[in-house]
C-alpha cells in the first residue's frame, strides 16, 4: 500500500516499509563502503586476497556512491538495482578467491553467504519498488467533515453525561483515587 503523508518524500512511490528497507540498505551500503575504503588491507588479508587492495577500495567507493544515491534520490529504485548488480560483482570477485591454496577460504565462504543474504534483500526491495513506483497514488479521500456528530464536536463533548455506567463496569471503589484531581480549566489542550 502506498500513502502520501506529510513526511512522504515523493508521490507515486512504495509504502513506508519498503522505503524504510531501501533507506536501511542505503545506510548499510555507505557503512560497508567506508569499511572497504578505510581498511582494504585488513579485508584483503582476512579473505586471502593480498594484492587486490586497490580493487577493494574501488568497490568501497562504489558502495558509498550507491548508498548516497539511495538516500538522496527522489526515487531509489535504479540505485537499488545498482546494488543488485554490485552484489553480483562482489560474489564473482569473492568466487575467484575460493582457490584451493587460499588458507582463508573459509572466510571467503562466510563472506559469500553474507553477500548472498544481502543480495536477497536487495532483489526483494528492488522488485517491490519497481512494481509500485510506476503506478500513481490514488488521491486521498477527504474525511475531514465526517464528525459523526450532527450538532458538531463541541456540542457532543460530554453529551452522554446522563449515562450511568453500570455497577459492574465501574472502577471498583477500592481502586478509585481518594481524591479526584480538579477538572482542568481548559478542557482541551490547544491542538
Amino acid at each position: 500500500m502506498r500513502y502520501e503523508t506529510e513526511r512522504t518524500r515523493r508521490r507515486g512511490h512504495a509504502d513506508t516499509a519498503t522505503d524504510t528497507l531501501a533507506r536501511g540498505l542505503g545506510i548499510f551500503s555507505i557503512a560497508l563502503g567506508i569499511a572497504e575504503v578505510v581498511a582494504p588491507r585488513a579485508l584483503a588479508r582476512a579473505l586471502g586476497m593480498k594484492g587486490q587492495e586497490g580493487l577493494i577500495t574501488g568497490y568501497g567507493l562504489r558502495e558509498i556512491a550507491t548508498g548516497i544515491g539511495i538516500l538522496a534520490s527522489k526515487d531509489p529504485t535504479p540505485w537499488i538495482w545498482g546494488r543488485v548488480a554490485g552484489d553480483g560483482l562482489d560474489l564473482a570477485t569473492l568466487a575467484t578467491a575460493l582457490e584451493r591454496d587460499n588458507p582463508n577460504k573459509r572466510n571467503v565462504g562466510i563472506a559469500m553467504a553474507a553477500v548472498a543474504g544481502v543480495t536477497a534483500l536487495d532483489v526483494y526491495c528492488a522488485q517491490t519498488l519497481s512494481r509500485e513506483s510506476p503506478h500513481p497514488l490514488p488521491p486521498l479521500q477527504d474525511y475531514s467533515d465526517r464528525t459523526g456528530f450532527p450538532r458538531g464536536v463541541e456540542q457532543a463533548r460530554g453529551a452522554a453525561s446522563d449515562f450511568e455506567v453500570p455497577r459492574d463496569f465501574r472502577t471498583p471503589e477500592a481502586l478509585r483515587p481518594y481524591t479526584q484531581p480538579d477538572l482542568p480549566q481548559n478542557p482541551m489542550p490547544s491542538m
Binding site: 500513502y3 502520501e4 503523508t5 513506508t16 486521498l140 479521500q141 477527504d142 474525511y143 475531514s144 467533515d145 465526517r146 464528525t147 459523526g148 456528530f149 464536536v153 457532543a156 463533548r157 460530554g158 453529551a159 452522554a160 453525561s161 449515562f163 482542568p184 478542557p187 482541551m188 489542550p189
Partner: peptide, 28 residues
C-alpha cells in the same frame, strides 16, 4: 465518538492511515 460523548478530557488515536486519522480528527 463514545469517549467524546462520555466526556473524556482528551481523546488520542494512534494509526497510520491518513484518511482514518483525518476521520478520527474530525470526530474530536
Amino acid at each position: 465518538r463514545s469517549a467524546i460523548l462520555l466526556g473524556a478530557r482528551q481523546v488520542v488515536v494512534i494509526d497510520r492511515i491518513p484518511e482514518r486519522l483525518a476521520m478520527a480528527e474530525a470526530g474530536g
